[in-house]
Amino acid sequence: MSDLALILERCRQGDELAWEALVRQYQSRVYATALQYVRDADEALDLAQDIFVRVYTHLDTFEGHKTFLPWLLRLARNAAIDHLRRRKARPPRRDVQVEDNPPLPDTRPLPDAQWESKGRRQLVNDAMGQLTSTNREMILLKEIQGLNLKEIAEILGIPVGTVKSRSNRARLELARAILVLDPSAGMSTP
């Protein structure tokens, strides 16, 4: 039995330490996913918490033979859709400054290599903000989270062929958006 399987089993039994370990192991991934859906750092924190609550309440429905990440991302997607629907139905009372592409939060120190990395990530993140929600979701699931075509097809409920063509289209749109933002992208950095 793998470490993750053990942790999940302990979580099901109500082991609080196992739950904390699971949260720590997946919080960055869940937060990154939430961030791509809502495009707002504070809102993404709330959404990420909602996602973890869902994970906790649905742990019994997780079937061990399937991989955990696709299951987690499916829950995350459903939570994000609910969150966006609620936001649409009831706009926030506080004034929100419109910022299409918020800077990625990062509390780590930034030596040169990391500075470069942050620049790359920020550029791609900005370009992601230019995509349609369908294309952004496709890039998120396939290129960012690394799911395969079949897993994405199951999550989205569409045929594998459709996933492939949408993924292709999304990549093209993303590359175009990056070149608009920075025509030298891909040339100057290794």
Binding site: Q27, S28, R29, Y31, A32, L35, Q36, A44, L45, A48, L104, P105, D106, T107, R108, S117, R120, R121, V124, N125, M128, I139, E143, I144, Q145, G146
Partner: peptide, 9 residues
């Protein structure tokens, strides 16, 4: 893109 898979909250 892979670097975007995890963002420290």
């Amino acid at each position: 893109l892979v670097e975007l898979a995890e963002v420290d909250p």
